[in-house]
Nucleic acid binder design. Structure first.
Lengths: 334, 334
DNA sequence: CTGTTAGCGCCTTCAA
DNA sequence: TTGAAGGCGCTAACAG
């Protein structure tokens, strides 16, 4: 009962021409009689004919699509990067497909395999781990790809990332000036970008040996929850504290909860975030944070990938973006 | 110089078997000798062989992917719906591809065509317009699809949407109780969902004839900007005002600006939003808003689509979700 | 358990 | 300007 899909042959026979001729109007070839073209177009219209992209691609047409794998949809950082990428590539006629690995390496590998399998023209990946198997797989494919939010271990891999080590350092220098009695670090999944932030932070931080550290806090919900714990265990209500939180989403969650409890930010507790997502301007206490240059990351990744596709991936552009301290209200140098 | 991709034939000849045998290990067929399988697997591994999905699909394999087209990436409502959908379908082994129409109908049509062209198993579309050409195209295809955030004109189209008219009514009833001297409505693109909210709101609102209305405000940046204008033109600083803003993102932007200017929310200006995105709990003044039941929308859309794919799209489930008033701080009944 | 034979729908020479 | 033929990489009967 399933109605058969109309194919190029159907169109051809109805028009009384060969498949080749129909194919020519599909690819908008110039060498075709105007009337033939008109007629074929009309028939296509009549049947709402949509050529089978799989077949086209199999037969050699470029797909004109790039795939991007991000770690999570709920993280504004990735969404903003993706949005920027979409803007750029669509100008060149490409379409972007977003996939989410949900921070699962197995899942990421599956998605990468899928993208390779569907022969997209290029891939942008924010890998769960810097030595993820996905990267090896990608390398063995001949599809141009670009890593974001990570600095790969191997050579000959294109990437764009912010200098997270430097970002951590910036935060530390700010902390040193604030010089609060209590200093706490809150980080997310053990990801290279995070590790580098931690290192950069610790290395430049005064009294680093006293630093308290909470890990695996990654969403604003989790931030909201950990805040209560912090208050009790580390007496945030009594000891002037500085928080460095390596993710704006989390920072916003924490601040929200602190305010509810009646702890003032930045007076009692000052908070420095990381990323500078758009939202950090719009949250309850605008965030003092380290900017990753989100728009730059997206734009550069897209442009370079497009370029690599043009050069059939023989180059490996590398970009390390300089982070920047953005002073707003959640932490100030009184 | 471009290294040729390894195909099933390469694997087959290297293993000294036929393509069919290799294909069998690909599909994990039981009727295959264990040693053959092992051997073939090893060779695949050696070459990092990834089967061509285009070819597989052309030859009849289901793609196991669904496509979703949303209006914009920067809108948390859509992202949250998409995230929910991804959760659900991935449990069934499907992969989701997200595409963004950027509120452009032409672009939407192109993307729909692309999805049909690539023969995905199902499509979820948040159409720019309720009588978009995309919908007609989708109908003429034999791919199961589900509309979200809209109530289609024609019958026999599956959809899930919140009852926006009712949502507007809820807001109006709340406004009537607040009974502020000045009442202002702020809406986004002229989309059916918005129109319904407006209608529902106006119909139940006391003193609706005095209602002021600003249109085409759709992002929090735009909200942030319009706030200054509002203050000046409508003397928000002097006249107690109630704002109904049909989009939480915008509402958050507006509140942020109002606070900066020194206008208190909800005392001087009370704000009712729409959507209940997660963020509305975390913004500077937690939002009183109309909940669309975002998670429900995503879950239902995904589940029903999966079901339609199973039944080869012969059913047309329709869901109208009851919106709900969520009382937080940005507007209260004193 | 395995090989052979046909396509799937389209594009691309090569001739006409 | 058009048509015929071959092939892209894989799956699906149908024989053995």
């Amino acid at each position: 009962m399933k109605k058969k899909r109309v194919t190029i042959s159907d169109i051809a026979s109805e028009a009384g021409v060969s498949k080749a001729t129909v194919s020519r109007v599909l690819s908008d070839s110039p060498k075709i009689k105007f009337e033939s073209k008109e007629k074929i177009l009309k028939i296509m219209e009549k049947y709402s004919y949509v050529p089978n992209h799989m077949a086209q691609s199999l037969a050699g047409s470029p797909r004109m699509t790039i795939g991007i794998i991000i770690d999570e949809l709920a993280n504004f950082f990735f969404i903003e990067v993706a949005d920027e990428i979409d803007q750029v590539i669509s100008h060149s006629g490409y379409t972007m497909q977003i996939l989410s690995s949900r921070w699962e390496e197995e899942n990421e590998l599956k998605l990468v395999r899928q993208l390779i399998s569907s022969r997209v023209d290029g891939i942008i990946l924010a890998p769960v781990s810097e030595d993820s198997r996905s990267i090896a797989l990608l390398k063995s494919s001949d599809i141009p790809f670009m890593l974001i939010n990570v600095i790969p271990m191997q050579k000959k891999i294109a990437y764009v990332s912010s200098d997270n080590h430097q970002g951590g350092k910036l935060a530390a220098e700010f902390f040193n000036k604030m010089n609060r009695p209590s200093q706490i670090l809150i980080t997310g999944f053990p990801h290279q970008s995070i590790t580098n932030r931690i290192q950069g932070f610790r290395e430049s931080l005064n009294r680093a040996e006293e630093l308290l550290h909470y890990e695996n806090i990654s969403t604003y919900e989790q931030g909201y929850e950990i805040a209560s714990v912090l208050v009790i265990k580390n007496r945030l209500d009594q000891i002037k504290t500085a928080l460095f939180i390596t993710n704006d989403n989390v920072a916003i969650g924490i601040i929200t909860r602190l305010l509810e409890i009646g702890i003032s930010v930045p007076d009692q507790v000052s908070v420095v975030g990381f990323d500078d997502i758009k939202l950090s301007k719009f949250c309850r206490i605008p965030l003092t944070t380290i900017s990753q240059g989100i728009k730059d990351i997206g734009k550069i990744a897209a442009l370079e990938l497009l370029d690599m596709i043009g050069n059939s991936g023989s180059t490996f552009p590398k970009h390390l973006i300089e982070p920047q301290m953005i002073l707003r209200q959640s932490a100030v140098l009184s």
